[in-house]
Write a protein that binds this DNA or RNA. Sequence first.
RNA 1: CGCGAGGUAGAGCAGUGGUAGCUCGUCGGGCUCAUAACCCGAAGGUCGCAGGUUCGAGUCCUGCCCUCGCUACCA
Length: 684
Amino acid sequence: MPKRYTVTAALPYTNGPIHIGHLAGVYIPADIYSRYLREQGKDVAFICGSDEHGVAIALKAKKEGKTPQQIIDQYDQLIRESFNSFGIAFDHYSRTSRKIHHETAQEFFKILYDKGVFEEKDSEQLYDPEAKQFLADRFVTGSCPICQNPEAYGDQCESCGSTLSATELIHPQSTLSGAKPELKKTKHWYLPLNQYEDFISKWILEGHQNDWKPNVYGQVKSWVSNGLQPRAVTRDLDWGIAVPVPHAEGKVLYVWFDAPIGYISSTKEWAKEKGKDWEPYWCDKETQLVHFIGKDNIVFHCIIFPVMLKASGRYILPENVPANEFLNLEGQKISTSKNWAVWLHEYLESFPEQQDVLRYVLTANAPETKDNDFTWDEFQARNNNELVAIYGNFINRVMVLTHKYYNGFVPQPHTLHEEDKSVLQAMAQLPKKIGDSIENYRFREASQTLMSLARMGNKYLADAEPWKLIKTDPNRVQSIMYTALQVAAGLSILSEPLLPFTAQKLRTMLQLKSKSKLWEQVAHGDTLLQPKHLLGASALLFQKIEDDQMESERSKLRNAAQNNKEEQKKATPLKPQVEASQFETLDLRVAEILEAKKVKKTKKLMELTVLLGEEKRTVVSGIANDYDETELIGKKVTLLVNLKPRALKGIESQGMILLGENEAGKLIFVAPEDTQVRAGTPIK
RNA sequence: CGCGAGGUAGAGCAGUGGUAGCUCGUCGGGCUCAUAACCCGAAGGUCGCAGGUUCGAGUCCUGCCCUCGCUACCA
């Protein structure tokens, strides 16, 4: 039994607001877990904060003509408000831009540096002479060296899927200034993960095979078996935490090095405010450290950060990292850039005071084992059929009957019958059952168990039929209503971690005093509401949600995505001018598609046989998402024929079909309108 | 033949060797205290496919297929 718990939730990155995916994947589970532990009287520190460094924020600031500080202030504020309004009850929420964090992160780096943990390496990287900075990854675009796609990024070509290094790009261009980058030497510090393979293997692969989630375990295994590589922990950037060693001007800590240290600095800040000692929460072996994250963070929380902690020789390691998978929205990936999301601050405008509805839906449908889909249909169904019809209705029945029969006083029971006792006994099992689910990070299961208590209450009332007996056997009705009221009280107590707002409302309605050890009382079968106790006024806990509300949410979503798309379209910059002679080097011709076959194991690739005059050619094109094999046959398209052939998935592609994109995002062929034109005709 | 996770009733999920379950939806019935809510019952699955181990497999092994992720300013 651990002495104390340190619970962390992934630090939200302050370049956008919080959406339902964040909530479902990280913050709700972490909040339920911490609330439950507090309810058990445990010593728990639930820690989080804003992650405010890194290239993305620097880039966003440049694009919007603001300072990074303005960006992070704006989103830090918005994110705090979102968490507050949804009852995500952190013990402390800090920011990585604070002094205490800079000091903590620098000290951490310094400890590893002094121990000689890092490797120093010089390398040549692309440098933008106009913006005066080094260009990492997505700061560079250029032509893909493999498939010639002119819009490949510095880390990857989205057209052919190849992983690239920025220096491989042909005709690289800075996305900051449009300038042509030059190669320049730079020094960086690397964390030699390769030296810690044994440590990770022993700790996770051998030590946590059975208690960690399969998705987390599997990811780690995948990384380790591919061989861990040294990873740079510094960057050339003007936004971040200065590297605290000599000859490191213009260098900052890589955001992924400093962010997890944010958990520690946030804990320090909290401890200072509370007059506590922070160290036991991070250094005492009897502390259970748990990181709640999304699956994209697995490598950082299961490999990189633990290696940092281990290398420091000072800190404990996480006991578990219950990472969730991703939540989709109406069948599509949630995307900040495409504005395909339900933002928390907007949700509350549409559904004021209904935080628990979203909490419940996101818990009941949480992506615990695989990616899940959030739909407004399901949201409505869960609200109307479960929260309103089962939970809310049970409470309403009990309240109405008690007020009607006893003017709101809890009646004095007579001898309890078997059915009364068995309901109370069944309820006494639930604190442990729900607790076990939560301790094992099975929040979906916990929510189902909670709902089963309300179901049980409804069934009990239906079987006992107090509204009939009131005419013939009023004494019996007193026992029935007494029993039903105990169930209502139990429901309010056990709801606290999952539905905190509802639990509070219900307690007020029942006039149930806040005391410690309430869960224990439920488990012991104690009387929760004494006879003659006076209840408060009755109110509805949940409201039905109508179809037209859902329709308006769906159209809001579609409109937002559409507007976003149009804005982005306007923003597509023109490429530099070219000479006519350059254009003439391209050989464009009309081609007719003769055969089409989807390439197996790929999403978009289609293998096409095209007719080009007398000659037939094989071309691989990424159009399988938008076109079926059959509808392609006979189509005339424009083909770039003198593109250097290249193998895609083992098939040699001898040319590139010109494509555009229509309003709906569907790829359309740049094709000769007159279908009479002969295949092979050159285009000028 | 890259790696990982998933593939179980119309939908969403549970179920790691012993007669296939839960919630929602559908259909039928009951009740009327309750936000037409609640309660009972029924229909609906060759547990992705094929082979193997076993007295016995959704559950273990092998091969294959499909989906998602590992690669995006997104957890």
